[in-house]
Amino acid sequence: MNIFTQIFYLLRKEITLEWRQKYALSGILLYVLSTVFIVYISFQNIGPQVWNVLFWVIMLFASVNAVMKSFVQESGYRQLYYFQLLHPIAILLSKMIYNSLLLLLLGGLTFVALAFIAGNPVQDAGIFALTLFLGSTGFSITFTFVSAIAAKADNSSTLMAILSFPVVIPILLLLVNLSAHSIGLLGSTDIADKTMLLGAVDLILVAMGLVLFPFLWRD
């Protein structure tokens, strides 16, 4: 089996598994909804700037929770089974793609919930969608790789936050900046630059992940 078929089968496995145990997916959806609701109750009146920041902060915390389980919650025996059967790159890439899709869904849901409760300040939907796409891939790449690292340790949930937050801050800064463009808070002069930069950071992190994961994997 070449890597692409492996990725395909792994992806199908992830999605089937998620669909069968709906509690994980619905848990995250409820998490987003209740966070948005709490935020609304505390703020009442949410201006565009606050909306922008809140959106990404909710996304950040929901993403960490959603992605954390990808390696941390796999049992040791199943990992051993994968190890004999599959290429490590296929495992990492399939997790990253699956998590990107999950986070895209999560982002869409957060947007709908926040827009429903606090109004929709987005003026340029195209840029916002692009930002959401780049953001969910960036978050998924970083968090998936960090969860692979954290899964090796015992107190993995604390480590997950300590390791991933500093690494993800530059991505978060760029995202807040880009989506501020789509809301019309910033003039649209250097959108292309920032998009390219965000894409470049994502690419660097994917490349690092692919190179380093085989070393992390062998136990």
Binding site: V167, L197, V201, I204, L205, M208
Partner: peptide
């Protein structure tokens, strides 16, 4: 694991 994270952290430090 330390070595892996060190390289990953360095790559994210430069940008």
């Amino acid at each position: 694991v330390g070595a892996v994270f060190n390289i990953f952290a360095y790559a994210s430090l430069v940008p």
